[in-house]
Design a protein around this nucleic acid. Sequence first.
DNA 1: CCTACCGATCGGTAGG
DNA 2: CCTACCGATCGGTAGG
Lengths: 217, 217
Amino acid sequence: MSAVATTDGATTNGATTDGRVLKGNETRRLVLGRAMRIASVEGLAALSLGRLASELELSKSGVFALFGSKEELQLATVRAASRVYHDQVIAPALDRPEGLARLWALAESWLAYSRTRVFPGGCFFYAVGAEFDAQPGRVRDALAEGSRTWHGLIADQLAAARAAGELDADEDVEQLGFEVVAVMEYANALSLLHDDDAPYDRARTALRRLLGAAPTD
Amino acid sequence: MSAVATTDGATTNGATTDGRVLKGNETRRLVLGRAMRIASVEGLAALSLGRLASELELSKSGVFALFGSKEELQLATVRAASRVYHDQVIAPALDRPEGLARLWALAESWLAYSRTRVFPGGCFFYAVGAEFDAQPGRVRDALAEGSRTWHGLIADQLAAARAAGELDADEDVEQLGFEVVAVMEYANALSLLHDDDAPYDRARTALRRLLGAAPTD
DNA sequence: CCTACCGATCGGTAGG
DNA sequence: CCTACCGATCGGTAGG
C-alpha cells in the first residue's frame, strides 16, 4: 500500500503530504496563536517549547519539529503578529484616500487594535520591541524593519497630505510622524500599566493638535 | 569564655554585627547594580539567583539570603533603579525654579539619562514597564506608582508654569504632560531599536512645539 | 508528531 | 540568638 505506484503519484504523495502539511499548518497556527498571546503579555523570552506543548496538549518534540529552534519560533511569532497587525490596522485604512483621511483611519484602527486588546498584552510590537531593542540579533532586526515600514507608511500619508495642501507646505513630515506614533504608543503603555482607557482620549486629543480635526465622515 | 559577661556586650555584638551588615550591604549593592543592568536589557524575568551569583563570583545561596525570593529581588531591583532615576534625572533639576525652567531641566536630564545609557538597555522603567504592564502583581504595582509620581512631577511644573503665565491660562496640564512624556519615551525606544541618537533631537523639537523654546541659560 | 532521554540550570532550602 | 555566606542538593523544567 505504501509503495503502490499510481499515474499521479504526485497526487497520492500530495494527498499524504497535504494531509500532513494541513495538519502541520493547523498545528502551526494553533501554536503561533498561543505564542503571540503569551509574548504580548510576558515577552518572547517566556515562550518555551514545553509550555506551548503542554498548554496545547501537544508533545514538546512535536512543537520543536514545527520550528526547529527557539529563535525560529520567536521569529515565526513576530511574522504571525505582523500579519495580524496588517489585517487589523493597515488593511482597513487602505480604502481611504491617501493623506490625512488615510492617516486618521490608520490612527483610529491602531487605537482600536490596542484598546480592544487584539493581543491581551496590548500592542505586540510595543511589548516585544521594548524587550528586544537592546538585544542584537535576528528578532531585533525584524522588529526594526517593521518599525521602519510603519513609520514610512505614516510619513507617506503626511507627505501626501502636505502635497494636497492639508498640511502647511513647510511641515516636517518625519518629525510629525514621530510625534504621531509617540502619542499612540504611550497611550498603549499607560492604558496597560494603569488599566485605564483614558490615555486613548489623550492620544486622540494630541493627534487633533498635530493634524487638525479628524474628518467628520 | 563563651559565657563571660562584659559591660559592653552590646558594643561587642554591635561590632560583629556591623562588620557583617556592612559586608552584606556592599554585596547587596553589588548584586543590585548588576541586576539593574541585566533587567534594563533583558527584563526582570531574566534575573536569576544563579546567574547573578556566578557573574559576581558569589554563592547562589548567598544571593538568595540577601533577598529571600525572586520576587523580592525584582522589587529590590526596581527600588534601586528608582534611586538611580531620582539621582540622575530628578535631583539635578530641583535647584531650578518651578515651572518651565524646572520642566526643561527634567526633560534634558531625562534625555541625557536615556542617551548616555545610564542603564545599558536605556530607560529602566521603559523596559521593565513594558515587560510588566500586563502582568498583575507587586512589581507592576510598584511601576504604576512610579509612573504616577513622575507624571505628577511633570504636571506640577506645568501647573506652576501656567500659574506664572508661562503657558496659556486654558492649557490642560495633564494633557500636555502626557504629550511631553510620550515624546521622550518614544525617543528612548527608537534610539535603542535603531541604535541612533537622532530621535533625541526629534523629542527636543517636539518639546519646543509643546512648551515653547528652551530657556537660553 | 511520539517516548525517552541528555546536560544545564531554575528557584529555593538543608545542615554546618 | 544573629548575619552572611558555603557546598550540596531538593523537585522540576529548559532547549534540543
